[in-house]
């Protein structure tokens, strides 16, 4: 506010009031976010330290870090963390990110009808509701599904992919569903790269790959960092797709943290424990975001 006063040259108090007045339209949004997003997060922090159960609200006791101790010593929880990291790294950071970039780059030099068809199909997969996408992949990977039919025709033995490789199956389904977002972000970013710079690099004798890695990608690094943050966080919280495909099974082999938290809270009625796990998931998301925001910030200071 001090800087505002100096700029406007008006007395401090009226400037403060003006700033308040100007910020007023933020009110409804801030209230909603505080009550329904901030509230649950605070409640999450509180409930994670209690033995709250789903049945019978009487007698909620403060149990300290017991829920967290229980989580960190439970092998199921450890496995859920590993599955979550696998799912996030394979389907978001590698799959959606790289495939999205490849599509965006290919789109730039493909011919118009191909481009239109491909983007309609890829975005179509993204627009489909997550439960429907889950069912599609359930049938595609099942024992009688198309994948097995294709593999059988080239002599590969058929199997139920949802039983043999459940976590990989849901990860690939998530790549299929989510790549469109990265593709749209990268297409928009690439269209902002001035063509003169790329042309100049080509004239100077840089090959296609050299131009890509030394010119194009560095120029859109901010979009890459922002996109990585958003898709990582989105993927950490995928629930409907996995629930529709495997329900976290078989024998918890595709149970990521959201599924684990849901089961503990609602199937086993341990609201406190489920909340503690949800809080850990929230923290993992927070750490990823801080990491990406940090990159963006470093960028800003050095450039």
């Amino acid at each position: 506010m001090t800087s505002m006063t100096l700029e406007a040259g008006t007395p401090r108090r009226s400037s403060g009031r003006r700033a308040l007045l100007r910020g007023l339209p933020l009110g409804p949004a801030v209230i909603l976010l505080a009550v329904f997003l901030g509230g649950p997060i605070l409640y999450c922090i509180y409930a994670a330290f209690t033995d709250m159960a789903l049945t019978g609200s009487s007698g909620i006791d403060f149990v300290g870090v017991e829920n967290f101790a229980k989580a960190f010593t439970s092998p199921e929880f450890g496995r859920a963390v590993l599955y979550t990291l696998f799912f996030t790294v394979v389907s978001a950071i590698i799959g959606q990110n790289v495939l999205g970039m490849i599509l965006a780059l290919l789109m730039r030099s493909g011919s118009a009808p191909v481009r239109a068809t491909v983007s309609a199909i890829v975005v179509g997969a993204w627009v489909l509701p997550e439960v429907v996408a889950g069912y599609l992949w359930l049938t595609f990977l099942g024992p009688d599904g198309s994948l097995n039919a294709i593999l059988a025709s080239i002599g590969v033995p058929t199997q139920n992919w949802l039983y043999t490789t459940p976590i990989l199956a849901v990860a690939i389904a998530n790549i299929w569903r989510g790549t469109a977002f990265s593709m749209l972000v990268y297409s928009a970013a690439l269209s902002d790269v001035p063509t003169e710079i790329v042309e100049a690099a080509k004239v100077d004798g840089a090959g296609t790959w050299r131009t890509l890695f030394s010119i194009t990608l560095p120029m859109i690094r901010r979009s890459i960092a922002t996109n990585l943050m958003l898709i990582t966080l989105q993927t950490l919280s995928v629930f409907g797709l996995i629930w529709a495909m495997t329900k976290g099974g078989p024998s918890s082999k595709s149970t990521t943290l959201p599924i684990f938290a849901y089961e503990q809270a609602f199937s086993f009625s341990q609201l406190g424990y489920g909340t503690a796990i949800a809080l850990i998931l929230l923290l993992i998301g927070g750490i990823f975001s801080l990491f990406y925001l940090r990159i963006l910030r470093l960028e800003e200071n050095t450039s």
Binding site: P40, C44, A47, L230, S237, F266, L271, L282, G285
Partner: peptide
């Protein structure tokens, strides 16, 4: 924008 909404559904239910 990216906050795992799934993570807070359990406390939201409680709330």
């Amino acid at each position: 924008t990216g906050l795992p909404i799934t993570a807070i559904m359990v406390p939201v239910y409680g709330l």
